[in-house]
């Protein structure tokens, strides 16, 4: 039996210890905010925090989470109490299809916790493991930069023209 902390609650899993953490969280603990995208640690849709570090859980055996703290998007914030990044996501109208955004936000939250004043290059580097097929990158970057207090690093304004 594997015991770990899930968003602050102690939980136990009795199944195959090789089961990826993602499927334990989704199918056994029924938290559906973390997504399945590739099953190979290549896209980041499944990103959670393990003791505060962003980690791709579709390839992480649940055994590796034993006695550690797992945080999912549900534990980061909720519609009534948003994490500053979630508020920035809404303000910048970031999501399109939205499927990758839990993973994007979890990767960004780990970055901001580690480097509250992350630079544009820091953001590029930290976020390059998370794919967004809709191509929301300019807005993801602007949202993170606004929380990091360096919004000037990305100019999202567009000029309007008149025919």
């Amino acid at each position: 039996m594997i015991t770990f902390s899930l968003n602050g609650d102690s939980v136990s899993f009795k199944g195959d210890p090789n089961t990826p953490l993602l499927w334990v969280i989704r199918d056994d603990f029924k938290l559906k905010g973390s997504k399945f995208g590739c099953g190979a640690g290549l896209c980041g849709a499944c990103t959670m925090h393990l003791d505060g570090a962003a980690i791709k859980t579709c390839v992480l055996p649940v055994a590796a989470a034993a006695n550690k703290k797992v945080t999912t998007i549900e534990g980061l914030g909720n519609p009534e109490a948003l994490h500053p990044l979630q508020a920035a996501w809404v303000k910048h109208n970031v999501p399109q299809c939205g499927y990758c955004q839990s993973g994007q936000i979890m990767a960004a939250a780990a970055l901001i916790a580690d480097k509250p004043d992350a630079s544009s290059d820091d953001i590029d580097q930290a976020m390059s493991g998370n794919i967004c097929r809709c191509g929301c990158y300019p807005r993801i970057k602007a949202a993170i930069a606004s929380v990091a207090g360096n919004s000037q690093s990305y100019d999202a304004t567009a000029v309007e023209a008149t025919s």
């Binding site: 999912t72 549900e74 909720n78 519609p79 948003l82 979630q86 809404v90 999501p95 936000i105």
Partner: peptide, 12 residues
């Protein structure tokens, strides 16, 4: 704002 932005930013 997109009507679905909040749900998609919170995993809901």
């Amino acid at each position: 704002p997109r009507v679905d932005a909040l749900a998609k930013a919170t995993g809901t």
